[in-house]
């Protein structure tokens, strides 16, 4: 092989390596634009963060909004599936709250709107201050309390 060919090979290798790096960076761009960062330090004095699900842009009919507690401000669009609430990392809304059980409560699609049900938690689930022992209707505007967390349905 001639000296010229080798030099061309040598520089094209370097150029391709960097092109590869830049194409990876181009794919990464999605991390910077079109994402939403929610800082977990809440107004109630910076409770230690825990993983929670965040909202997705799905064709949401209703939103589940946390109105008080360490996760205040969290918003979960409701789809057609159940939402589990509790301390278990497998839950959709993972609470970092000693007053809630592993799987505490379930929000599920009911005949007309949404229902809420306690899953046998230790400290109970409260709808508008009333402890529930069976599945009840979750009306928009009513407040469901699980441990130190209050959630509401909002449009």
């Amino acid at each position: 092989m001639s000296e010229l060919t080798l030099t061309v090979l040598r520089f094209s290798l370097l150029i391709l390596l960097w092109l590869f790096v830049f194409s990876l960076a181009a794919v990464l761009r999605g991390d910077l634009f079109g994402t939403r960062v929610v800082n977990r330090v809440s107004a109630s004095g910076g409770g230690r963060p825990a993983p929670t699900p965040r909202d997705r842009r799905t064709p949401a009919l209703d939103n589940l909004v946390v109105t008080s507690g360490p996760l205040a401000g969290t918003r979960i669009p409701l789809g057609s599936t159940d939402i589990l609430i509790g301390r278990n990392p497998g839950c959709h809304l993972v609470l970092d709250d000693d007053f809630s059980s592993g799987q505490h409560a379930r929000i599920f699609p009911a005949a007309n709107g949404w229902g809420v049900e306690d899953l046998g938690s230790t400290n109970g689930t409260f709808v508008n201050g009333q402890r529930i022992d069976e599945a009840v209707q979750f009306e928009p505007g009513s407040q469901v309390r699980v441990g130190r967390t209050t959630i509401e349905l909002q449009k």
């Binding site: 999605g30 991390d31 079109g34 939403r36 960062v37 977990r40 963060p49 965040r54 997705r56 842009r57």
Partner: peptide, 11 residues
Amino acid sequence: MSIVTSWRPRR
């Protein structure tokens, strides 16, 4: 530990 999610999850 904040949570960051993309609007449109792309595979």
